[in-house]
Design a protein around this nucleic acid. Structure first.
Length: 891
DNA sequence: CTAGGGTTAG
């Protein structure tokens, strides 16, 4: 029928069409038909009717066309009534235009029109979505004012609103004031408690609900399940699971997803599988929960496998992709990572920033930096995380300059955040670019990032790791706010810089502030105690660990093993190792290192065999320990075996530490030429630590020719570590080339590099006494000096001749002897002998390596005085007994 | 119900 015909109809017929149109409007199912009816209404001139305007407004809003609704409302301005106002408010809320809805509500109030009980829930809902607490209170007052205070729907909406505004007291008040409640009332309150983390209350009301005889539905259950997880109430969770099966909401996907998530939180993977297999309807969230759950349970391969199973008949979303990419990165599964990437490209998922950021991350972890960069460059828009991820990629793969370059590029596009600075400060601890560290510190000060605690913590750590404890300390003292990590970091800093007394002071300051010790606190404290090597302190700390209940922590156990071994009680290390319930590769490494330090290479090898037998896969660190052990026991063949085993059986590329150990092993065993060839065959450029290892061995073996050649190489590297300069300068001193020595001293001073001063210390009756080389001002100095003179005579009679090559100054020979006698370890030994019972063992600690002459002298002293002397130097233990040393001169 | 970057520790 055409329009013309319609217009010429009689009044009765018009009534008929009026009703038909109204019915058609109510039952319209798509937007196209709605538009047709709309134009018909206009043609018929019925658009001024309040009824049709209202119906059109709500229909357009149903089909998500709020602009159409708005224009109809605007056009009928001359005769708006309550009905239209209500309709437009509901329409706006329904389409998420909450502030517009509230504007209409305000206008309505100004016109003194009261919304009906169907519209007020919409108004309340808008307040909730806008998180507008002030308006929320006004609306609530208005509700009470107009007498809707006990309306079920309105009260339900109010509870929901206050829950979302995180004001559970008000939600609870509304709940308590209601005379009639339905399941939605209960669900709103329970979900409010649950989503705001009030687990106890959520469970409490769940039980109350059951007591009043109501049957929970899928919404109730999915609200209360997180509360079970949150409270770690596995039994409650299982009970609810049982209930769910009984009342039959099991078929609901949301409920099953909730059960899955709960069982994953309790690590009940078997139950997860059961629930998953029972589900006949699954959705994307189901798969995401599975993939993410396996990831969180460290079953990365399983989560990758599930992804490829999922894509057969399900479309993943960006959350799925993010989860699976994380898993790929974790296990460095480049192949799967690439497949996921391919999938993303083929299915046009490449616009998601998060997924791309994770792609960068995955490729980075697999060492595929070019691929990371390709993703980074291909991104249409990048956020902070993109830049930070790419910088981390460069930093983790030791491309420090590239990381810095990217940071400079980043600054042109957007403001770095505190995390960027933390990343770069961490980079500074590894890179040797000290200039950049200063620059970075200045920039972050200018931007005010020094007030962010994590940045401050990273500054403390950075300065300590480049050896500038003073700067760490200054940063620490200047901080206005500190957290537990700050304290842990400053204590660790003292450990890195070997300042025990400062470390111990920091620990007591921390305790006085009432800050709770954490695992890292104790780990740092253990490191300090290991360095100190004092038996009493070591045992006290171990007791403290028991009292605090940290004894079962694996990393703590590992550090305790190290502490006892470095304190000269290897037996305790073994006992702690045996008592540990779980041991990781680090525990075994700690024990192997311990035996290595005592020169027990064969035992270390046996432990290594046992470790492999119980199924622990060796990592690169344990190979450092085993090579170190071989080198300190002169086990050349065994060392080579391990070196090749590492490459061939475990595909671990040797790092410079491994090369340094091998060079050490070869050169200590007198194979200097072989060691030099080995260095020249290295795939990487040998650094100072490698040449340094050869040089120190040359010195003890007395091969001056190679020594001079190696010194030259070492100096060419121009390392910042003063130790190597001192080593080279000692070679020239031994050669008598004093001009060169002087020149080097000068250049060291000019560059501000200071040789670490030598210190020795020992513990007598719970007190630690420290001696520095050439120290004269301590109690009993005269007695010690006189005793050393007497001792020299006795030693001379036994055949001792001072090895003047170890006196490092250009002075007369008798003065050189005098200087050697002033070496800190000799002072400590003499002091120890004078202050302990004759015949009792002595234990001396030294921060540097023991000098050759002192080593010989100590052998004589142990024989003449019949004392067992245990000396721990920077590298290992020497047990002097009756004129010999346990190191067999391999040191 | 599910998602991305950082500090302390061998």
């Amino acid at each position: 029928m055409n329009t013309r015909k319609l217009c010429s109809l009689s009044a009765g017929s018009r009534d008929f069409f009026y009703t038909s149109l109204s019915n058609a409007l109510s039952s319209v199912t798509n937007q196209r038909n709605l538009r047709r009816i709309h134009s018909l209404i206009i043609t018929l001139g019925l658009h001024n009717s309040v009824l049709f305007s209202g119906k059109l407004i709500s229909k357009y809003s149903q089909f998500k066309d709020p602009l159409a609704s708005l224009s109809i409302f605007g056009q009928s301005s001359h005769k708006k009534n309550v009905y239209l106002w209500n309709t437009i408010i509901r329409a706006m809320t329904h389409n998420g235009l909450y502030s517009t809805a509230l504007d209409f509500y305000t206008q309505m109030r100004e016109l003194r029109i009261v919304p009906d009980n169907y519209t007020l829930p919409s108004v309340i809902n808008s307040c909730a979505n806008l998180l507008d607490f002030e308006t929320a209170k006004l609306v609530h007052d208005h509700v009470l004012e107009v007498g809707f205070g006990s309306d079920l729907y309105i009260c339900n909406a109010l509870i929901d609103m206050y829950s979302r505004l995180n004001n559970l007291d008000r939600a609870r008040n509304v709940f308590d004031g209601m005379s009639k409640r339905d399941l939605i009332t209960w669900n709103s309150l329970i979900s409010g408690y649950s989503s705001n983390g009030y687990w106890d209350e959520a469970l409490e009301f769940f039980y109350k609900l059951r007591m009043v005889g109501l049957l929970p539905d899928c919404f109730t259950v999915s609200s209360v399940l997180p509360a079970c997880s949150g409270l770690m109430e596995v039994v409650e969770g299982q009970l609810i699971h049982g209930l769910v099966e009984k009342i039959g909401v099991m078929r609901d996907v949301i409920v099953s997803n909730g059960l899955l998530s709960m069982y994953f939180k309790f690590d009940k993977l078997v139950d997860c599988e059961k629930v998953f297999n029972k589900m006949d309807v699954r959705d994307t969230v189901t798969w995401n929960t599975m993939i993410c759950g396996f990831f969180n349970s460290s079953l990365y391969d399983e989560s990758i496998r599930l992804f490829f199973q999922m894509v057969h008949d399900f479309e993943p979303d960006t959350i799925t992709l993010s989860s699976v990419l994380q898993a790929c990165g974790h296990v460095r599964d480049l192949k799967s990572g690439r497949s996921v990437h391919d999938y993303m490209v083929k299915n046009r998922y490449t616009g998601d920033i998060t997924a791309n950021n994770l792609l960068i991350n995955t490729y980075t972890k697999c060492g595929e930096l070019l691929a990371s960069r390709e993703v980074f460059d291909s991104m249409k828009s990048r956020d902070l995380v993109s830049w930070n991820s790419m910088i981390i990629g460069y930093a983790e793969n030791e491309f420090y300059e590239e990381a810095i370059e990217l940071f400079n590029m980043m600054k042109m596009e957007l403001e770095p955040d505190s995390i960027t600075y933390v990343i770069l400060l961490t980079l500074c601890t590894q890179s040797t670019n000290r200039y950049f560290a200063t620059q970075l510190h200045c920039t972050l000060l200018k931007q005010g990032f020094d007030s962010i605690i994590t940045v401050g913590n990273s500054l403390i750590d950075m300065y300590a790791k480049v050896g500038e404890l003073d700067n760490s300390l200054e940063q620490f003292e200047n901080m206005e706010a500190r957290d537990v990590v700050t304290w842990n970091t400053i204590i660790a800093a003292c450990g890195h810089c070997e300042d025990c007394s400062l470390g111990l002071r920091m620990i007591s300051r921390m305790r006085n502030k009432g800050i709770t010790f954490e695992v890292p606190t104790l780990l740092s404290t253990l490191t300090l105690c290991s360095f100190l090597g004092a038996k009493r302190q070591a045992k006290e700390l171990h007791g403290c660990i028991f009292r605090l209940g940290f004894e079962s922590d694996v990393s703590i156990g590992n550090a305790v093993i190290e502490m006892y071994s470095k304190s000269g009680i290897l037996w305790y290390s073994m006992r702690v190792f045996k008592l540990m319930k779980t041991k990781d590769v680090i525990s075994w490494t700690a024990l192997i290192s311990a035996y290595g330090m005592y020169g027990e290479g064969m035992k270390a090898l046996k432990i290594f065999q046992k470790m492999k037998k119980v199924g622990i896969v060796p990592d690169h660190v344990v190979f450092v320990a085993i090579l170190f052990a071989c080198s300190h026991s002169g086990l050349v063949q065994e060392g080579w075996d391990c070196f090749y085993q590492m490459k061939n059986d475990y595909s671990i590329e040797p790092r410079k530490e491994h090369y340094a150990c091998m060079v050490d092993l070869l050169s200590r065993s007198g194979l200097l030429a072989e060691a030099e060839d080995f260095i020249l065959s290295m795939p990487q450029k040998p650094d100072a630590s490698i040449w340094g290892a050869l040089l120190s061995a040359c010195r003890s073996s007395g091969d001056i020719k190679i020594a001079e050649r190696v010194s030259k190489r070492l100096l060419e590297l121009n390392s910042d570590d003063p130790g190597y300069h001192v080593l080279a300068s000692n070679v020239y001193a031994a050669l008598g080339k004093w001009d060169k020595v002087k020149m080097m001293r000068k250049s060291l001073r000019a560059r501000g590099l200071k040789k670490q001063p030598g210190f020795s210390w020992l513990e007598i009756q719970n007190r630690v006494y420290i001696f520095g080389t050439g120290h004269r001002f301590f109690e009993q100095y005269k007695e010690v000096h006189d005793f050393l003179v007497v001792l020299s005579d006795l030693m001379a009679k036994e055949g001792y001749v001072a090895d003047l090559r170890f006196a490092l100054h250009d002075v007369e020979d008798d003065e050189k002897v005098e200087m050697l006698c002033g070496h800190s370890e000799r002072l400590a030994i003499a002091f120890g002998v004078l202050n302990t019972e004759p015949g009792s063992p002595l234990q001396i600690m030294k921060n540097l390596r023991v000098c050759g002459d002192c080593h010989t002298a100590t052998k004589y002293i142990s024989k003449i005085l019949q004392r067992v002397i245990l000396v721990r130097d920077a590298n290992r233990f020497h047990l002097f007994k009756d004129g010999t040393c346990s190191c067999g001169d391999h040191w």
